[in-house]
Simulated scan of single mutants.
Amino acid sequence: MVSKRKKEMDEMGLVTTKEMFAKAYNGGYAIGAFNVNNMEIVQGITEAAGELNSPVILQVSKGARAYANHTYLVKLVEAAVQENPQIPIALHLDHGDTFELCKSCIDGGFTSVMIDASSKSFEDNIALTKQVVEYAHAHGVVVEAELGTLAGVEDEVCVEAGHESYTRPEEVEEFVDKTGCDSLAIAIGTSHGAYKFKASQCTRNADGVLVPPPLRFDVLEECIKRLPGFPIVLHGSSSVPQEFVKMVNQYGGNMPDAIGIPEEELRHAAELAVCKINIDSDIRLAMTGNIRKYFAEHPDHFDPRQYLKPARQAVKDMVAHKIQYVLGSAGKA
């Protein structure tokens, strides 16, 4: 079964994340995992990665599959692989919440899946993750799991601030040993969405700008000690660039106190054992800000190609910035 699946992946040109992560771990950089929902996003991400010779992970959420259809998304990714044969590209399911969803993606061409059972008990998380791992490995697909829960909202993932929980380092060895997962998403203070923190959780600098609480690098470092050489993943790692928040608000939006994770903290994490950093909200902000600006400056235009072209360029520029200055993956393909 694995050899047949590998042949199918080879024909599609997709790879798993196994070799990507091994190189990233030893090289002190991370691979960007960018959420895709339509053609322009796929194009912008892969054009940036291709020009910078960077490996990349295109990830699809349950919500993206509902919006764009599994088949359309897979075919868009296949087209991107054909256009960028010089770089490794993996297709990953983000936040799969059931065995059935993971199985559907494994059977449907994905090379990596995440099973997120972090809301369940430790024992139930192990049981469901192990079930997915056994099926995935039998089909040549790798599995990401999660311990700890992140606050914030992303598609159908919703955890109120104050209900998140940091990963318990003393659990990670048992979890990985019993499940056989290939990478582990941990909770060290990142958060989903553009509104990652309440104002009460932050301080304000001299300019009155909200500053989020620092990431728990002590938790990350303890996990590294307990899982030497094992790839760690960070979810909810958009930085919510204030230039795009201002752009959205300037052209009719309403995003008060949107705040993200400082890029210098993410770069430090990438230098350690974090091999995959998830980024979604920053792409959405860049696209939406530029579309709002275009509409304001060209009220007579109505052709979607006119406003989606600068939106696509904004995605490309955002991804290029992340690859060069946050992930450190430029030239690593």
Rank of each mutant, 00 (worst) to 15 (best):
K7R: 14
K7G: 10
E8M: 08
E8Y: 10
M12A: 01
G27E: 00
F34M: 05
F34C: 02
I45E: 02
L58P: 04
A68H: 13
A68E: 06
T71P: 03
A80G: 08
Q82I: 04
E83A: 15
I87P: 02
P88I: 09
P88M: 05
I89M: 02
C102V: 02
T111P: 06
S112M: 13
S112R: 14
V113E: 06
D116I: 07
F122H: 15
Q131W: 14
Y135Q: 13
A138L: 06
H163F: 10
Y166H: 10
P169F: 10
F175I: 11
F175P: 12
C181Y: 00
T190A: 06
T190P: 10
V211P: 11
P212S: 08
P212W: 03
P213D: 00
L215I: 07
F217P: 02
K225L: 03
I232M: 11
P241K: 10
Q242D: 09
E243I: 11
K246N: 13
M247K: 13
N249P: 13
N254Y: 14
M255N: 04
P262Q: 08
R267G: 00
R267F: 05
V274I: 06
G289N: 00
N290D: 10
E297R: 04
E297D: 02
P299L: 08
H301M: 14
D303R: 15
L308G: 06
K309P: 05
A311N: 03
A314N: 12
M318R: 15
V319I: 10
I323V: 07
G331I: 09
A333S: 07
